[in-house]
Design a protein around this nucleic acid. Structure first.
Length: 112
DNA sequence: CGATTGATTGTTATT
DNA sequence: AATAACAATCAATCG
């Protein structure tokens, strides 16, 4: 049995009183990459809507997530692949962000 | 060095 | 424009 890391990833439905998550923390945030779910939704949202034209937001989310878990790794693979591809892109942004901050704030194209 | 957390991504319908 | 379940993620940061 693999060791489990105590990582109770639960953040959704945690809207007690917080004014939503913070807009951003660090200036020039290179934004992360999309997750496989993002690509999965882009492709599936059509089918979900096709098979569930009455499905609203709740149904979509729950139904989508349920399907996602149903898929096999091979099924998710293409989505993960896209996510991985985007990750490379995000990596570039991060690299640029890292380099830029290392360089110093001097000449920016259009950054305020 | 390890774990945790925080920030982020995209969908839709409603307001 | 913003929010809210759904899932991933993963990079930076703290101990």
């Amino acid at each position: 049995m693999p060791k489990e890391a105590a990582k109770p990833r639960r953040k959704a439905a945690e809207k007690a009183d917080k004014p939503a998550r913070k807009p951003k923390k660090v200036p020039g945030a290179p934004k992360r990459a999309l997750s496989a779910y993002m690509f999965f939704s882009q492709d599936w949202r059509e089918r979900i809507k096709t098979e569930n034209p009455d499905a609203g937001f709740g149904e979509l989310g729950k139904l989508l997530g349920a399907k996602w878990k149903e898929l096999d790794e091979a099924e998710k693979k293409p989505y993960i692949d896209q996510a991985a591809r985007d990750k490379e892109r995000a990596d570039d942004e991060k690299a640029a962000f890292d380099t830029k901050q290392k360089n110093g704030s001097g000449d920016e194209e259009d950054e305020e």
